[in-house]
């Protein structure tokens, strides 16, 4: 993702372009700095050219908003389009964030030419759990079509070393039984390397799937 900055008399305006994911956490820090600058500061983020945002990206917007509220500055998001608009809708973010359309939103019509992007699985390190174990987080959707990416994810999980790795599922939106199988394989691969892989914080559909499958024992006690 690219970020362009523009300072106006009435505040700072950022323009985001491309795909925003967990990989952009560092780039996003300029927006966090801007909202934290002073009370009354107005920060506008133009999303017209943003093609996609994952759940981590949404988390960054929410964080920026929270910080703006804390400092007394304001954050305004402009013109989310296509996938981004849909994801904001699905997450009901209009209730929390200041979203404004100054041009018609695209992406909700049959003529829309944006490819139906799969909101696939993302993987990121979340630092250390309370007991010092490495903690990693899944976000997005873990379904049958993710088989191709999972080997790398399992290898990354195991590379954290033992004796315990915490897998945080709080940002995993959806998982099917093929996704569950992949987690079970990761669990077993870890076990073979004397690493206990424990699951934490499943939400919504993911928690329901674990419960329906009687696999709650895999969760952190």
């Amino acid at each position: 993702m690219d970020i362009f900055t523009d300072s106006h008399s009435d505040g700072t305006r950022f323009t985001l372009k491309g795909v925003m994911s967990f990989r952009d956490r560092d780039a996003f820090s300029v927006i966090l700095d801007a909202v934290n600058q002073r009370a009354g500061a107005k920060v506008t983020v133009d999303l017209t050219a943003l093609e996609h945002v994952d759940s981590f990206g949404i988390g960054l917007f929410l964080l920026a908003n929270e910080q703006a509220v804390g400092v007394g500055s304001s954050l305004h998001l402009l013109n989310p389009q296509g996938d981004v608009s849909r994801i904001f809708d699905l997450a009901n973010l209009d209730a929390i964030l200041s979203l404004k359309q100054t041009m018609p939103a695209t992406g909700a019509t049959a003529r829309n030419s944006a490819p139906p992007r799969r909101i696939g699985i993302d993987y990121r390190h979340l630092g250390k759990a309370e007991d010092g174990s490495p903690c990693v987080g899944f976000s997005g959707r873990l379904v049958f079509a993710e088989h191709g990416h999972f080997q790398e994810i399992v290898e990354n999980l195991i590379a954290n070393g033992g004796p315990r790795v915490v897998l945080d599922l709080s940002e995993l939106e959806f998982m099917d039984s093929a996704g569950l199988s992949m987690i079970m394989i990761a669990h077993e691969e870890a076990e073979a390397k004397q690493i206990a892989l424990v699951l934490r914080n499943p939400k919504g559909a993911v928690a329901q799937l674990l419960s329906l499958s009687a696999l709650e024992f895999m969760l952190e006690a």
Binding site: G82, D83, S85, R86, G107, A108, T109, A110, R111, N112, S113, A114, P115, P116
Partner: peptide, 12 residues
């Protein structure tokens, strides 16, 4: 009836 890219964000 269209290429899959036209499915976009959903049914109109």
């Amino acid at each position: 009836m269209a290429p899959i890219s036209c499915l976009g964000a959903g049914f109109a």
